[in-house]
Simulated scan of single mutants.
Amino acid sequence: MTDLRIGIVGVGAMGADHAERVARRTAGARLVAVSDPDTVRAEALATALPGDVRMIADPLELIADGEVDAVILASPGFAHAEQLFACLEHGKPVLCEKPLTMDAASALRVVEAEHKVGRSLIQVGFMRRFDPEYAALKELLASGELGRTLMLHNVHRNKSVAPTFRSEMIVRDSLVHEVDVARWLFDDEITRITVHAPKPTSLVADGVLDPQLAVFELANGAIADVEVFVNFQVGYEVRCEAVAERGSATIGLGSGVLTRAAGQWGGAMPADFRVRFERAYDIEVQRWVDAAVRGEIDGPSAWDGYAAAAVCEAGIESLTTGRPVDVDLADKRQILG
């Protein structure tokens, strides 16, 4: 069988990581092209990877290229809408890193455009669904062994982010993962969000609200809370505890090798998301490739990306006003039939 020929748009930290993944450890796939506004960086990456990887300066040219079968979008969110429409126009399966787009209105237009194409081409990069711990938690909760799930408690901490990372980006680029986790684990939509902000850490620029505490209310009456702290300084930490009628289950405790030496005990904390979720990314990309060959997707859909964008849009409003905000979500049946 011929390998799926993949082009990657955006080769910053995430895109470069995907490029290595596709080129070296994804079965049935071959990296054939990369694109980035920093053409020097893109050319250097293309040269360093095995095989004949081309650098194509214009991302739309990469998407249209006849030797590219499928596309990974790791470009900035503001570029996604145009690039997604191009993928749909050319019938290219696409794995789009979050956010789907920068706002709910444009995300909904993407959903509608894909529906007109007549088949699912867009998968959104909510990789936590592929993490073995999250997958095991989903299976446990779905089994009913613990009874009905009542609440989720989430922690999402980064060691640090760039000084340009603003308050609304914490919602749109970080909290968005827990938005998807809550929708996925409860298999229901978030109907209201409240985002609280305590006095911020002294390690951020004036006006940046970090950390943040969000509360989601779901249509089925469940509640989820999320602490997001993107300048935690210690390391990358993601945890989730599900509280159900007959017990609870927690993942992300980092129970790796525990050392005792020199009068101390402890273990290591990952430096960033690429370490903590390396296995999840590997599984995600492999399953996306396998599904693309079958003419399908195998993961979060364009609708999931739109729903997350709508929740985050309401979350940014709540962060600004200090009030709960209802999520304005389109009727899925009317959009998709």
Rank of each mutant, 00 (worst) to 15 (best):
F277K: 00
E278G: 11
W265T: 15
G299W: 06
E284Q: 13
C240P: 10
W288P: 07
E284K: 10
V275G: 05
G252R: 00
V234K: 15
E284A: 05
G254E: 00
W288N: 02
R294L: 08
A261M: 13
G267L: 07
G235A: 05
A271S: 15
D298W: 01
S248K: 08
R287N: 13
E245D: 01
V257G: 11
I297C: 00
A292Y: 05
I223E: 04
M269N: 09
L258Q: 14
V243G: 04
G299F: 11
A291G: 03
P300W: 12
S248P: 06
D298F: 03
V226E: 02
Q233E: 15
R239V: 06
Q286Y: 10
A291K: 07
G247C: 08
P270V: 01
D290Y: 01
A244H: 04
G263Y: 00
C240S: 08
T259G: 13
G247Y: 03
A222M: 06
P300C: 03
G299P: 05
A249P: 10
V275E: 12
G295M: 02
E296A: 04
I297Y: 12
I297K: 04
Q286H: 08
F232D: 08
G295Q: 07
R239E: 08
G254H: 00
G247P: 03
G295A: 05
V293P: 11
A261R: 14
C240V: 10
G247Q: 09
I283G: 07
E284F: 12
D272F: 03
G252H: 07
E278F: 07
D272A: 10
A244T: 03
I223G: 02
E284P: 06
